[in-house]
Amino acid sequence: MGPRNRQRKHTGETHPYVSEAHEGRPAYEWVVAASVALSAVLALCDQLFWATLTIAVISMVSAIVRLVLRTRSPWKIRSVGFDCFFGFALGIGLLATYAAIMLL
């Protein structure tokens, strides 16, 4: 048996505390879910610009809320940097992709 197959001893390191009870606020998450549902309805009604804009805006607003409020933010997924990067990247990326498609 190699060293990889042996059981490792507990080194006293603690695992990070992860609990959905301490992450985010359900009311804000329902607002985000409602925005996604609204975007789906708009897309079904052939209002693609408004559907894209809805998702982009809620994504960037969530990133701004997370950046400003930090630990008190109602929208938490991971770290502040992670949440803000992906929030802004999704919002800007969706708008850029929509604009690129329309310019073809």
Rank of each mutant, 00 (worst) to 15 (best):
I77P: 00
R4N: 11
V68P: 00
E20M: 08
D46G: 08
E29V: 12
V36D: 06
I92T: 14
V65H: 09
P74A: 05
G87M: 09
S73V: 00
G91F: 01
V57L: 15
V36M: 11
E23L: 13
N5M: 08
A43S: 13
P26F: 06
L95D: 01
C45F: 01
W50A: 15
G91K: 12
Y17E: 06
S19V: 00
R4D: 06
F85G: 05
L48Y: 09
R6N: 11
Q7L: 10
E23C: 12
E20T: 04
L44M: 10
A51V: 03
Y98A: 02
A40F: 06
G93P: 06
R66P: 05
L42K: 13
E29N: 11
T52D: 06
R70E: 01
V18Y: 01
F86K: 12
E23A: 13
V68W: 01
P16W: 00
M102A: 15
R6T: 12
R8C: 02
T97H: 12
E13L: 14
W30E: 00
I77H: 01
W50T: 09
D83N: 10
Y28R: 05
A34Y: 02
M102T: 11
L104T: 15
H10N: 15
A34N: 05
F49Q: 09
L95T: 06
S39W: 02
Y28A: 13
G24W: 02
A51L: 04
L90S: 10
C45H: 12
Y17R: 09
E13Y: 04
V68S: 03
T52C: 14
T14E: 06
Q7F: 07
L67P: 07
R8K: 15
R78N: 10
R78L: 06
E29Q: 09
G12R: 06
S79K: 07
P16G: 00
G91M: 03
V65W: 01
G2C: 03
G93W: 01
K9C: 07
Y28G: 14
A27F: 02
V36P: 01
L67E: 10
A37G: 07
V31H: 03
F85R: 09
E29C: 09
F86V: 14
L44V: 01
L69D: 07
T52N: 13
R72T: 02
G87N: 09
T71F: 00
V41W: 14
K9N: 10
K76D: 00
L53W: 01
E13K: 14
F86E: 00
